[in-house]
């Protein structure tokens, strides 16, 4: 089964893009490597900070744009992984090791299969 692991991180871990200044920087590398070495990694991406986001809506044919993320929350989506594991239990085990679990939150969602 494939799952998306969504990393919700605190902005201060996020605004500072210098990996050596980020307390969790090296941890992300180690985590990604662990996923690859265990043979469960399907894909994923790290996102630029949420201030770089642009949000768009079309209402009654009118485009409405604003700067920033869709929702201003304490933690922001910082990136995601797609993993292939037997079941939710195994996915949760990987989610617990995600560095964001200790500093922000991690959302685990099954991916819809065609």
């Amino acid at each position: 089964m494939q799952f998306a692991i969504l990393n919700y991180v605190k902005p201060h871990n996020f605004a500072d893009q210098m990996p050596e200044n980020d307390p969790d920087g090296p941890a992300w590398g180690a985590y990604t490597k662990a996923l690859i070495q265990a043979g469960v990694m399907v894909g994923g991406a790290a996102l630029k900070p949420s201030h770089a986001a642009t949000t768009l809506r079309v209402t009654d044919g009118r485009r409405d744009l604003h700067d920033g993320p869709y929702a201003e929350t304490k933690e922001q989506l910082g990136g995601f992984y797609i993993i292939e594991v037997p079941d939710l239990d195994a996915a949760l085990e990987w989610a617990a090791r995600n560095p964001a679990a200790a500093t922000g939150a991690v959302e685990v969602r099954p991916i819809m299969q065609p």
Binding site: P23, A27, A30, Y31, K33, A96, R97, A101
Partner: peptide
């Protein structure tokens, strides 16, 4: 150590290993 860090759940142990 890299492998261990990637498999660690809690932040304190992760810092210790790093």
């Amino acid at each position: 150590y890299e492998r261990a860090i990637g498999l660690t759940e809690d932040a304190a142990s992760r810092r210790f290993l790093a």
